[in-house]
């Protein structure tokens, strides 16, 4: 086996962090777009708070990507949907409140599980940033769990069905190339396949055995390993997430 060169490793890390950051950007927009669907004042506060935090995660990751050779303004001003690498899970808008909670739970936990692979990264600023992302995501997941408890107590079956329907797209996001370069080089703590298994177990566990299973795996058609997604972000979604004001920067 040959040692992967530095450029290939740098590119692999850049791709994974950009996939994480872009998925966070879309998730933050899910929160802002759905604020008015909240059921009560604490929902509004939570959705706005989680939006703020998630935009913050995007900003901090984009700023970190500057160290890896990315241009910050260039990242914010991408003008084509094809340039974004957000997870397929968030392509399709929520169908109802249960589907919304199921999807943001799957997205938050997937992003955290994926990010946690960098908790032991040799570049300590990256490891430190990931830890802070985790501390904040903890409360986002706690919010989702509050709703999960309500769905369980009220015998809501729609939630479990929505979760099972969305799970294959979430699992697909962890797809690894044949060689996990970052893991082999000591930059990712665990192989992506292990992270994916832990994720699946945690999701099924959250259903407390009331799982309908996780359906057939998502299609591999058009899968782009660099962008960690299949196909291009839908145009409608792009119109929501792109920065409309040329003077506005998250930084």
């Amino acid at each position: 086996m040959t040692t992967p060169d530095k450029d290939a490793l740098g590119e692999a890390l850049r791709n994974d962090l950009l996939a994480l950051a872009d998925s966070k950007l879309v998730l933050a927009n899910w929160y802002t777009t759905c604020v008015h669907n909240g059921r009560s004042l604490p929902d509004f506060a939570a959705l706005l708070g989680m939006a703020t935090a998630t935009f913050g995660h995007t900003r901090a990751l984009y700023l970190y990507l500057v160290n890896l050779g990315c241009d910050y303004d260039g990242l914010e001003r991408r003008a084509q949907p094809a340039a974004f690498c957000s997870m397929n899970l968030l392509d399709r808008p929520p169908e109802d409140w249960e589907d919304f909670i199921a999807t943001v739970y799957l997205a938050e936990l997937a992003m955290w599980t994926f990010a946690s692979g960098f908790l032991g990264h040799p570049d300590r600023p990256l490891a430190g940033l990931i830890r802070k992302i985790g501390e904040e995501s903890y409360f986002h997941l706690k919010y989702c769990q509050g709703w999960q408890s309500i769905f369980t107590e009220t015998g809501n079956r729609r939630y479990g069905a929505a979760l099972a329907a969305r799970l294959p797209a979430a699992l697909a996001w962890f797809r690894a190339q044949e060689d996990d370069l970052l893991q082999a080089a000591g930059q990712r703590d665990l192989p992506l396949s292990t992270l994916c298994q832990s994720y699946r177990a945690e999701v099924l566990n959250s259903l407390g055995g009331a799982s309908a299973g996780d359906g057939p795996p998502a299609s591999l058609d058009g899968w782009d390993p660099q962008r960690r997604r299949a196909g291009t972000m839908p145009q409608r979604l792009f119109e929501i997430i792109r920065l409309k004001d040329p003077g506005a920067v998250l930084r």
């Binding site: 599980t113 946690s116 995501s137 992270l195």
Partner: peptide
């Protein structure tokens, strides 16, 4: 004030 350093469920890494 929230921050107490708690992380969400995290896959275990030996020796970390």
């Amino acid at each position: 004030v929230k921050w107490r350093g708690t992380l969400p469920p995290t896959p275990t890494v030996p020796d970390r």
